[in-house]
Simulated assay, not measured.
Amino acid sequence: MRHQYFHTKTKAFFSVESISDFRKDTSHSTPNKWFTILISTKVNGEMIIDDFKLSLNKPNAIFITPGQHLHFPDKTIFEVFSISFNKEFYCIEYHDSDVSCNGLLFVNNFNSVHFVLEAQQLSIYTNTAEEMVAELENQASLQDEMLKNLLKNLLIRSNRLFREQMSIGEIDDANIDFARKFSGLVEKHFKQIKMVVNYAEMMGIAPASLTKRLQKYGIESPSRIIKNRVVTEVKRLLMYTDKSVKEIASIIGYDDQYYLSRLFTKDTGISPSEYKKSQLKL
């Protein structure tokens, strides 16, 4: 069942849904609209985020950003609370200093963010989701503030659990924040800007220093991250639209469709047309 909050003036949106409702709005052809936290209470099978297959056999918390495509194979057993919101309701970047997330959970071009929920933590997460539902049903005064506080507490807990399971210490905060800033710039500008030197200039450092700083966080080179984002966008447009390679090249900022095809083929091992055919068979 779906429970939601929407403010007509600010366009702030927040919802808590069951997996059956969420799946109705989630398919290969429809990108996720919101920042979404999936709290799986029972799971056995696969969840596909874009073309990344996530195999799950334990309860998990999974974080999905706007624009990502989700797919649940029919054979997957998946019972979940879905907590979704937009930036008008709770802006991740603005609230980073409050919840100390530093972009670990949502602003992340480097990994699919998810972690296991053991029995005690699963109970806390499901209780929080149920408290959100109760608040949405009550329609009491200051409802949005109560929902934001519940969401903030959930994000704080998630940040701590993710750090713990990934062995990320407080000493890494500066590097994490640096990586988050670069990730955000790539997400915002990758269609127009492809050169590392331009991103380094936006961050106020030399290209070599940008590479070294990112290596401290154990992630790929800046050029690789930019290319990965471009290839991911090409895959999304091939899988979920009927646009031609020429149209896709124009959308992503390439004048030469053949250059984009060569880049894609070199990265994936197959041509764009072959990739599209392979996805249609799934």
Score class of each variant (00 low, 15 high):
residue 132 M to W: 08
residue 94 Y to A: 15
residue 1 M to E: 14
residue 29 S to R: 11
residue 96 D to N: 12
residue 133 V to M: 14
residue 121 Q to D: 15
residue 118 E to W: 13
residue 66 P to G: 05
residue 136 L to M: 09
residue 219 I to W: 03
residue 92 I to K: 05
residue 111 N to M: 06
residue 84 S to V: 00
residue 269 G to D: 13
residue 126 T to I: 04
residue 76 T to D: 06
residue 76 T to S: 09
residue 8 T to H: 11
residue 217 Y to F: 15
residue 256 D to Y: 11
residue 29 S to L: 12
residue 130 E to W: 06
residue 166 M to C: 12
residue 281 K to L: 14
residue 237 L to H: 04
residue 22 F to C: 02
residue 128 T to D: 07
residue 261 S to Y: 07
residue 251 I to D: 06
residue 224 R to Y: 12
residue 43 V to G: 04
residue 211 T to I: 05
residue 234 V to Y: 00
residue 104 L to F: 04
residue 269 G to M: 10
residue 14 F to P: 01
residue 35 F to G: 02
residue 224 R to D: 10
residue 110 F to P: 00
residue 58 K to C: 05
residue 51 D to P: 05
residue 106 F to C: 04
residue 92 I to S: 07
residue 204 G to P: 07
residue 40 S to P: 07
residue 76 T to A: 04
residue 185 L to Y: 07
residue 234 V to D: 00
residue 176 I to K: 00
residue 153 N to E: 11
residue 98 D to F: 14
residue 124 I to R: 12
residue 227 K to F: 04
residue 127 N to S: 13
residue 22 F to M: 02
residue 158 S to F: 06
residue 37 I to P: 02
residue 201 E to V: 06
residue 216 K to D: 09
residue 40 S to E: 03
residue 11 K to G: 08
residue 24 K to T: 07
residue 253 G to P: 03
residue 63 F to C: 05
residue 168 I to V: 11
residue 209 S to Y: 09
residue 37 I to D: 00
residue 152 K to F: 12
residue 64 I to S: 01
residue 17 E to S: 07
residue 45 G to L: 09
residue 108 N to D: 06
residue 154 L to K: 01
residue 149 N to T: 14
residue 254 Y to K: 03
residue 116 V to P: 06
residue 193 I to H: 05
residue 180 R to T: 13
residue 175 N to R: 08
residue 244 S to W: 08
residue 239 M to T: 13
residue 152 K to H: 15
residue 13 F to N: 07
residue 79 E to R: 09
residue 6 F to E: 03
residue 167 S to I: 11
residue 32 N to G: 07
residue 100 S to E: 15
residue 45 G to N: 05
residue 280 L to S: 15
residue 44 N to A: 15
residue 126 T to E: 07
residue 240 Y to F: 12
residue 251 I to P: 00
residue 62 I to D: 02
residue 69 H to V: 11
residue 171 I to H: 10
residue 58 K to G: 03
residue 230 V to L: 01
residue 263 L to V: 05
residue 254 Y to L: 02
residue 153 N to R: 04
residue 181 K to C: 03
residue 168 I to A: 02
residue 216 K to F: 13
residue 258 Y to H: 12
residue 204 G to S: 08
residue 14 F to I: 06
residue 20 S to C: 05
residue 130 E to F: 09
residue 252 I to G: 00
residue 134 A to M: 13
residue 267 D to L: 03
residue 257 Q to N: 12
residue 112 S to E: 11
residue 134 A to F: 13
residue 261 S to Q: 13
residue 79 E to T: 10
residue 222 P to R: 02
residue 141 S to F: 14
residue 205 I to E: 08
residue 149 N to Q: 14
residue 200 A to W: 09
residue 271 S to N: 08
residue 21 D to Q: 08
residue 13 F to K: 09
residue 247 E to P: 00
residue 280 L to D: 14
residue 138 N to Q: 15
residue 229 R to F: 04
residue 77 I to H: 08
residue 170 E to I: 04
residue 35 F to L: 10
residue 276 K to Y: 08
residue 2 R to L: 10
residue 172 D to M: 09
